[in-house]
Amino acid sequence: MASQNASLAADSMIGEESLGVTNGKLGMWAFLVMDAMTFAGLLAGYARLRWTPGSDWPLPIEAFGFTGIQLTALNTFILICSSVSMVHVLAEQMRGNMERAKKWMLFTIFGGLVFLGIQGFEWTHLIMDMWPYLFDEGYEAAYSVNFAATFFILTGFHGMHVSVGVIYNVIIYLGLRSGKITKDDTSVVEIAGLYWHFVDLVWILVFTFVYLI
């Protein structure tokens, strides 16, 4: 806890009576509450559309096919690894080993980019091969069009969060590399980590509801 108190003291904005965390961390948690509720709105809407009787909803396992699920499971794996490497960044920074923190940060960014790449590939495949009715009126949808629609809005909104997270992480990496973020600025990295883990956390839910159930 020593370093936490040090970073608290460095934050001159904090008052005598506080929750004992930095303003930045509190602000990020409040922001995450808001972000979580945005996803809650989309997911609750998904639940309603899907489980309304007569919605003609396919079982995702069958609709995406065997490989579709496997690929996304791999993607989940990559995002979880990227999340744990973000924890490593913070751990190494707290030990004062900035070189290794930078390496882990690169690994985190790389994980985010691979996730986005696989998702881009998946979207292309789905639009071109599975759901040609999206842009060609000559085709008929085999099942409820809302299956594709909710899929796009949920994974798309999450993918946007991953993109923002990658940009955020790149900024942190540049700060680490230029030396602007030193081993004492753990709260900066920790707050970025909170966002990145939240993106991972949401993906766990989206993966379960959209792909598996």
Partner: peptide, 13 residues
């Protein structure tokens, strides 16, 4: 914080 984002998601849809 808890309510406005739900409007945002409805309006996005």
């Amino acid at each position: 914080l808890a309510a406005t984002p739900v409007l945002t998601s409805a309006l996005l849809m």
